[in-house]
Amino acid sequence: MSMCAKALALAIWLGTAAAAFAQQPLNKETVEIGLSTDTIAITSGFRGTDLTVFGALDNADPLIQRQGRYDVVVILQGPERDFVVRRKDRFFGIWVNTESVTFQHIPASYSLASTRSLQDITTPKVFAQLGLGINNIFYEPMPDSFGSSATLREFSTELPRLKLKQKLYSQRMGDVQFLSSTLFRATLSLPANVPVGKHVARAYLFRNGEFLRESATSLNIVKAGLEFRIYRAANQHSLLYGLFAVFLAVVTGWMGRLVFRKD
């Protein structure tokens, strides 16, 4: 709670600063976002949550502001990974994975919030240039992946669909709200299966459909708790982990004999 209050206080300070410079020439608007923490530790009981990002819009033109023609899009993008998309086909009555395409440098998660629906903010062309939005992420196939361009297109439309289905990708229209003339709040989704690693939050500022500027901040998501320590041990000390698993099994089998000895 105190973290939130601090972020709010900072944002309010930025707000007053903005008011002081309101007489400045136009087109100097800046956007800043802040997170109350740079690391989020997720425990095993995590069922997903909303992440609130506060931001400030400075040097805004009060007229445009009143007309509500400033728009903000905030995204939170997870670490980049390589993913395989596979398709099943019937083979002698059995469903078998047949074709597959590997994509590289794909954000493992992607959450977007905007002041209103994307088509009302600016043209698809601008979004495409910015690579902003789930449909504008570059789904890059591995250089050695074979398949016709139709296949590649098919799989690159399936990838975001599967990600949306897993709730790893999300787009929330109207979830960036102006709390005052300068302060805004973006609500992003952190799904239960959010990947660990470095996440980047970015805010994009638009005025009258024109892209002005962006700002970014980063967030580290780590997992905490006993279960995660086990997970890490399995990955970093896999030999010891394997030997320990065998040891546990032998001890359990032996204990059972001692406890339930019949003779």
Partner: peptide, 15 residues
């Protein structure tokens, strides 16, 4: 289960 049509013909996994 091998013969029943899966809910989703496509699947995604980490490479």
């Amino acid at each position: 289960e091998l013969f029943v049509t899966p809910d989703d013909l496509y699947s995604i996994s980490l490479a």
